[in-house]
Design a binder for these strands. Structure first.
Lengths: 243, 243
DNA sequence: GAGTGGTCTAGACCACGAG
DNA sequence: TCGTGGTCTAGACCACTCA
């Protein structure tokens, strides 16, 4: 059962884990590694592919294979109200938002409970930590009956800064649907992750006290650096136990 | 940049989607497909690998590649109390449970807030729907101070049947941590999924009113057939909108 | 034993990045 | 231009399934 690529992947994994190859360093070229392990290049590449899926190695075309920096774990906190203290602390996050006016179609009509072609505002949020992107979100808000009671500047963009202040009236219902899947090629490109790295996809629908849907957020988080936490009672202690 | 494998994958995907190849049917052999598309076998196989990741095709060694049956979407409902009506309805689920006595170690001590080597009971749950497994769970319960007030037969095994009855006293806190990742080789084998198919991993920790942790459940659900839903207010209406 | 997928080879050619 | 990874080939051999 120990296929060659497995053996090679395990060996490289260990070299990375033990620090013999440090974060940010370049691996020897694929040709060198192939001859070192006395395998052909396709075999070696399939070993690297495994490390790539695990987020240990990043391939850069024309440059080489690089050991990824260890990732600070991101915690998404469900319930729509509070933010994990840990994440809030090192929120050296740059969040870029692109606002567009669109029309409801497909899933969105069902999610937002609006008629097809209803006017919506789309917020396309992309949050970076340092130079690497770490999450993306598409947030849709009904545009038609503009209610003045909902603050609307940096929107509920994945909750990073806007949730820090508790100046928002609590919503009647927040419903979050979570799934695991592989990223689309767009998402992989935007998040700069391997297309074989699983992502956590969260669809958050928030309704106000009248039952009207106030926002629908489609969040995509890289699986190797994001957790989502949902608790019936919010505890302030309890630090994340790493996996 | 349409690579050959992409073109082939798209073509096969469409043939499956349009029903030209029906669910359960066997695809032509890889050699036949390779010659049909005039590519080499490795190239063709990489195209099939993509379909495999998406859960469209299942490879069976020595038999062939088969189109998977469309999957009924499983919904895991968070909060630890109720069960989705949809899932409950077609819960033609056989749940097999293996019970073992183990000792707390590693993460478990932190999760359960017990000392290392504390005695635990491990429930290894595997739920099947028809012939294909659809989720697995490892559930740990402290064994030391046996409290008689907690029912313990078919345990909180992924919540399928035992949650239907509301005879259990509500827990003080249920905390669920969700992540997306690729399955371990064990999990892939147990769930009979491709090792490249993302899984939804849910760690559920339930504590009673005294703050004592009553159970820690490690659930693994195949990403292509499972969603998890968390809502602040449980709505009984609202059917799942398919992705 | 015939047919299938699983793995691997030893090259080839192309596309990208940097000097 | 040179070295890198990205893609692909045309086989080979092994392991598994089924008759």
């Amino acid at each position: 059962m120990p296929s060659r690529r497995h053996v090679i992947a395990d060996d490289l994994r260990e070299q990375i884990a033990t620090g013999r190859i440090k974060a940010g360093e370049r691996l020897p070229s694929e040709a060198q590694l192939a001859s070192h392990y006395t395998v052909s290049t396709p075999t070696l590449r399939s070993a690297l592919a495994a490390l790539q899926c695990e987020g240990l190695v990043e391939k850069i075309h024309g440059k080489g294979n690089f050991v990824c920096h260890p990732l600070r774990r991101i915690t998404y906190v469900g319930g729509g109200h509070m933010l994990d203290a840990q994440t809030a602390a090192d929120a050296a996050l740059r969040v870029s938002v692109r606002t567009t006016k669109v029309r409801a179609r497909g899933h969105l009509t069902a999610l937002l409970r609006v008629a097809a072609n209803s006017p919506l505002t789309e917020f396309l949020c992309l949050s970076h930590e340092g130079k690497s992107p770490h999450s993306m979100a598409r947030i849709y808000v009904p545009r038609d009956p503009v209610p003045a009671d909902v603050p609307r500047e940096p929107p509920w963009c994945e909750g990073v800064e806007s949730r820090l202040a508790d100046l928002r009236p609590p919503l009647a219902e927040v419903r979050e649907t979570v799934s695991a899947r592989l990223p689309t090629s767009e998402e992989a490109a935007t998040l700069r992750i391997s297309s074989a790295l699983a992502v956590l996809a969260i669809t958050r629908v928030a309704a106000d006290t009248t039952g009207r849907v106030v926002e629908a957020a489609l969040l995509v988080l890289p699986g190797n650096r994001a957790n989502a936490v949902f608790a019936t009672h919010h505890t302030t202690e309890e630090k994340g136990t790493e996996g």
